[in-house]
C-alpha cells in the first residue's frame, strides 16, 4: 500500500514536470550592440537596384547615399531565475530565441548637409535632409520618421554592419559636382560624421 502511494507521487511529479517543461523556456541571453563608426558611399539607383557608384557620376534623379553602420558588441545581460528543475527545458511553446542583440544607443538625429550649392533654396553648407528619404516597409519615409522607428533586435547573431540607403527625391537645380556631409548624433552624445566622395550629378 505504501509503495503504491510512493509510486503515485513519483508518477504525478513526473507528469507535472513533463507538462511544465513544455513551456519552461531558456532565459534569453541579451547582448548589447553599439554603432562604432559609419562609412558613406554614393549610390547609383538608375538600374533595378541601387549600387555603389564606382565612377561617382550618377543621374541626378537616381542619386542616393548609402550609410554603413559598423556594429560592435558592448555588453551582455543575463537574467538568472530560480527553477526547481533548471536542467530541463523545451525549445517549442513559442520560447524566445536564446540569443538576442539589442541596441545600446539610438540615433537622435541624422542630418545631411550639402557642401556645394544645391539649388536656390539650399546654398552651400545648408541642410538638405528633407530632400532625402529612406525606403522603409515599401514606403519612402523622411529621415525624421525613420529615426523614430523601433531599434532592430537581432536574434542569434549580430551582423558586422548594417546598411541604410537614403534616396534623393528632389534632384538639384544645379547639376555638376556635389559633396554631402552626413552627421549622426547618438543617444550617448557621440557624434559620427562622414563626407561623401565628390559626385557628379547629371
Amino acid at each position: 500500500m505504501k509503495s503504491k502511494k510512493v509510486l503515485i507521487i513519483i508518477s504525478t511529479v513526473f507528469l507535472l514536470r513533463v507538462i511544465i517543461s513544455c513551456c519552461d523556456c531558456v532565459e534569453p541571453v541579451e547582448h548589447k550592440y553599439s554603432i562604432e563608426y559609419i562609412s558613406v558611399y554614393n549610390l547609383d539607383n538608375s538600374g533595378q537596384n541601387p549600387i555603389i557608384s564606382e565612377t561617382n557620376i550618377v543621374p541626378s534623379k537616381a542619386y542616393g547615399i548609402q550609410i554603413d553602420f559598423s556594429l560592435i558588441q558592448v555588453a551582455i545581460n543575463q537574467t538568472n531565475t530560480f527553477t526547481i528543475f533548471p536542467e530541463a527545458s523545451a525549445f517549442d511553446c513559442f520560447c524566445p530565441p536564446s540569443l538576442q542583440y539589442t541596441a545600446k544607443d539610438s540615433i537622435i538625429s541624422l542630418d545631411i548637409t550639402t557642401i556645394n550649392s544645391f539649388d536656390s533654396q539650399h546654398p552651400s553648407d545648408s541642410d538638405v535632409s528633407n530632400l532625402f528619404k529612406v525606403l522603409y516597409h515599401n514606403s519612402y519615409i523622411t529621415l525624421q520618421n525613420y529615426i523614430k522607428q523601433p531599434q532592430v533586435v537581432y536574434l542569434f547573431e549580430k551582423p558586422e554592419k548594417v546598411t541604410l540607403s537614403l534616396f534623393l527625391l528632389q534632384p538639384p537645380e544645379i547639376l555638376g559636382e556635389h559633396i554631402f556631409n552626413i552627421g549622426i548624433t547618438l543617444s550617448d552624445h557621440r557624434f559620427l560624421t562622414m563626407t561623401t566622395n565628390p559626385v557628379t550629378l547629371q
Binding site: G47, A62, L135, N138
Partner: peptide, 11 residues
C-alpha cells in the same frame, strides 16, 4: 515598378 534612371517606385 521601379522607374528606369530614377528613384521613383510605384506599387
Amino acid at each position: 515598378l521601379k522607374e528606369k534612371g530614377t528613384n521613383t517606385i510605384l506599387d
